[in-house]
Design a protein around this nucleic acid. Structure first.
Length: 804
RNA sequence: GCCCAGAUGGCGGAAUUGGCAGACGCAAUGGACUCAAAAUCCAUCGAUCGCAAGAUCAUGGGAGUUCGACUCUCCCUCUGGGCACCA
């Protein structure tokens, strides 16, 4: 036997599988699409990709061996800012840059040995793909779920484009870290807020990690409360009937304690309400607030500032006249941009009231009255100083108070959300053109379906501009179009779509990737979807997952899908850190290059090491020594074959060992416990290495290893065991429950909870029999001399505890 | 500030979900092979005391429940992540 040379055998078998179209998948029985997140073609595969693709491949292969018709798809999420910025830097076209990267990464992905079905690979920059991205947009538009509106948007001055709220982290651009500005622009948006309730409630229908559910709940940020109307007192403009300030509150029970009202600086009523003598102060204040950046206002300076308008409103529950203030701790866009202030029961209002000496009225009794005097009491309790609602508990009081005001038309129950509509316009070149045409006469009109795709033109100058216009506006020939309604000259929309639109439906396309008539055939969709298991990174817990859930629900409502949740189960993988336990980055010089590791150890070793290093959802530092252990293991397997494998009789003991391992390793893979799966294989080799194995027994061993190390097992299976067909067409070995249970077991003997001895006993003994054996044991007797046995605990086949 | 996850040898981690803590691997030490090194193989490997048999301690810290706690409950410390003036 020659030395184990992974480089040689891996290439060989990869070519073999590809030539035989091994992993090309057709709809059949027991279909299973194992979904991982398709890659962004950044240029080079990094070790994180290996974790994301080659480890789930173990599960894909196992599922295939256990009788599933497995589709393990892949593709490229290829539009987007980074490619465009890289192309600008290198002064080449983003398309050339991206396509080169795709070529390179395709090659590298094949090196992982994963059973990707390349015949179904999708690429979001392919017009045959983005035709359907545009089509989905049009359907959303028809349904009123896509609309154009002038709003304040997050503008990244460096990338010169709009960002969705989700792409802003602590006031900075998620991509480049530049401080984000607010700009008022017309933007195309998806009405995701219409789906807020369903996106929230349906989380109960799917199996996601708790962290993901929490993250999504936070994003959606539903709070249930009420809208209350406060009549304006003696409004100087109230000629035609009473005017009101509306507030949103979750604590209507504290209404009797509302001693003032606060408007956000952006609130339209601010100047109206302000008394003439206060106008100067107010304007000065508004100017001050305007000069603060969003970051200063929301993240840095949380001290309360504000000014009195001099105006008053009337508390609708007790008709008391209360002052109206303006303060920037109230957020303009949330709720109504106005709040009722209850300083006794809200910390922020408390701080403000203390600072400006406003009155504080307690209306909820503290559970422990001896509690602190200083500060707001925010918990619930029985109402006090609350007229007819005296003594009613908060929860009930909320309902009663709103009900009462509702009769007078002064209140209603209301849910509020943090979630905003999804701004999908991007003023950049490298994206899917939004398929709309603007006609001076007819306004915005959709591009007719038959004219899709609206192809992205090739531009010499695709650099972003400062004026908020997309570079596509420079393509004069391209922008010219006919209005689809009146036929007159009109102009194409020049914004492109956020790449999250591209990736919000790609998994649907895997079911039917070359269909030219529909985004996918209904029957094929039914065969593969919804996705039974989606494995990916925690960075997509909110945006991508929420967006694709939304698009799926919308397509479902439009009648195109039978299901309204795209992924039944979601599991996250961890992050691989550098050997120094820091995030891998070029500047730190701690990047592990998988190409180099493949050269040194081969794909099988890397796959197994990534599996072995810890729980899959945890990640952790790459250990240069640790990988040696796995490499050694594969070498031992390789050399194992040199031992005689044809003894006279089949060894029962070996069968038993294999039987147990089959059950355990299979269970580990199903539970994504790849680390214990690998250790199980190592234990198995330890147990078998000094034994004689039949050809069949060795074959069984190889099958257990095959999902983890597809190349070495194929080599040994075909060239050494002389099998004609691939090991990857074999079924996972059957195990026999009966073989698992016979034989003696170790019985642990404790005295007062401390282990004193271990005895081998026959399985299934009764308590009486065990008691006789244990108490008769010389070694145990010495602990019991002169003691009374108070209690004898027996856990069947496992342990006894003698309490003295 | 709030929410979530986590803390186990020198290191990565395991523990049938309340039943032998430290599986498996790495590193380390000693030995075999070798002129030598690498590779490989054998042995040791949580701490303390002990020649040994063995004993005691030990899963971030402190209490509790239990015959029995890494596992459950309460309090605290630290680490990672998310949200954050959202009314």
């Amino acid at each position: 036997m020659p030395k184990y040379n992974p480089e040689k055998i891996e290439k060989k078998w990869q070519r073999y599988w590809e030539a035989k179209k091994f992993y090309h998948t057709k709809e059949g029985k027991n279909n299973y699409m194992l979904l991982t997140e398709f890659a962004y073609p950044s240029g080079n595969l990094h070790i994180g990709h290996w974790l994301a693709f080659s480890v789930p491949d173990i599960l894909a292969r196992y599922l295939k061996m256990t009788g599933h018709n497995v589709l393990y798809p892949t593709g490229f999420d290829a539009f987007g800012l980074p490619a465009e910025n890289a192309a600008i830097q290198r002064n080449i076209n983003p398309r050339d840059w991206t396509e080169d990267n795709i070529k390179q990464m395709t090659k590298q992905l094949k090196n992982t040995g994963a059973m990707f079905d390349w015949s179904r690979a999708v690429s979001t920059i392919d017009p045959a793909y983005y035709k359907w991205t545009q089509w989905i947009f049009l359907k959303m538009y028809e349904k009123g779920l896509a609309y154009r509106e002038k709003t304040f948007v997050n503008w990244c001055p460096k990338d010169k484009t709009v960002l969705a709220n989700e792409q802003v982290k602590d006031g900075h651009c998620d991509r480049c870290g530049t401080e984000v500005e607010q700009k008022e622009l017309f933007q195309w948006m998806f009405k995701i807020t219409d789906y807020a309730d369903r996106l929230l409630d349906d989380l109960d229908k799917v199996d996601y990690p708790e962290t993901v559910r929490v993250a999504q709940r936070n994003w959606i940020g539903r709070s249930e409360g009420a809208l209350l109307k406060f009549p304006i007192f003696n409004s100087k403009f109230s000629k035609g009937g009473q005017e009101y300030i509306e507030v949103f509150t979750t604590r209507a029970d504290t209404l009797f304690g509302a001693t003032y009202l606060v408007l956000a600086p952006e609130h339209p009523m601010v100047t109206k309400l302000t008394k003439d003598e206060n106008l100067d102060t107010i304007n000065k204040y508004l100017e001050e607030v305007k000069n603060k950046t969003e970051i200063e206002r929301l993240y840095i300076d949380k001290s309360k500032t504000g000014v009195n308008t001099g105006g008053y409103v009337v508390n609708p529950i007790n008709n008391e006249k209360i002052p109206v203030w303006v303060a920037d701790y109230v957020i303009g866009w949330y709720g109504t941009g106005a709040v009722m202030a209850v300083p006794a029961h809200d910390e922020r209002d408390w701080d403000f009231a203390k600072k400006f000496d406003l009155s504080i009225e307690k209306v909820v009794a503290m559970a422990q009255p001896e509690g602190t005097e200083d500060g707001a009491y925010e918990d619930e309790g029985d109402l006090i100083n609350s007229g007819e609602f005296e003594g009613v508990f908060s929860k009930e009081a909320r309902k009663k108070i709103v009900d009462k005001l509702k009769e007078k038309g002064l209140a209603d129950f209301k849910k509020n959300y943090k979630l905003h509509d999804w701004v999908l316009s991007r003023q950049r070149y490298w994206g899917v053109p939004i398929p709309m045409i603007h006609c001076d006469k007819c306004g915005y009109q959709p591009v007719p379906e038959k004219d899709l795709p609206v192809e992205l033109p090739v531009l010499e100058d695709f650099k972003p501009t400062d004026d908020g216009r997309s570079p596509l506006a420079k393509a004069e020939g391209w922008t010219m179009a006919k209005c689809s309604k009146c036929g007159q000259d009109a102009e194409r929309e020049t914004d492109t779509m956020d790449t999250f639109v591209d990736s919000s439906w790609y998994f649907l396309r895997y079911a039917d990737p070359i269909n030219q008539k529909e985004f996918a055939d209904k029957k094929k969709l039914r065969a593969w979807l919804p996705v039974p298991l989606y494995i990916g990174g925690a960075e997509h817990n909110t945006m991508h997952l929420l967006y694709s859930r939304f698009i799926t629900k919308a397509l479902h409502d439009l009648g195109y899908l039978d299901f309204d949740e795209p992924y039944l189960t979601r599991r996250n993988h961890g992050v691989i850190l550098g050997p120094d336990n820091q995030k891998m980055s070029k500047s730190r010089g701690n990047v592990v290059d998988p190409d180099i590791e493949v050269k040194k150890f081969g794909a099988d070793t890397i796959r197994m090491y990534l599996s072995f290093m810890g729980p899959y959802d945890q990640g952790g530092p790459w250990n240069t020594d640790g990988i040696q252990g796995v490499f050694r293991f594969l070498n031992r397997i390789w050399n194992f074959i040199d031992k005689p494998t044809e003894p006279k009789v089949s060894d029962k003991e070996v069968d038993k060992i294999l039987n147990k391992a089959t059950k355990e390793i299979g269970g580990d893979i199903r539970d994504l416990k790849f680390n214990t799966g690998v250790s199980g294989l190592m234990k198995l080799l330890n147990a078998l290495e000094d034994k004689w194995l039949t050809k069949k027994q060795f074959g069984t061993f190889l099958k257990l290893l095959a999902p983890f190390a597809p190349h070495i097992t194929e080599e040994l299976w075909q060239t050494v065991l002389k099998n004609k067909k691939s090991i990857h067409l074999e079924a996972w070995p059957q195990y026999d429950e009966a073989l698992l249970i016979d034989g003696p077991v170790d019985l642990v003997i404790q005295v007062n909870g401390t282990k004193r001895d271990v005895l081998k006993i026959t399985k299934g003994l009764s308590e009486e029999e065990v008691k006789r054996i244990v108490l008769g044991n010389e070694n145990i007797k010495k602990y019991l001399v002169g003691k009374d046995i108070k209690k004898f605990i027996y856990v069947k086949n496992r342990l006894t505890n003698i309490v003295i």
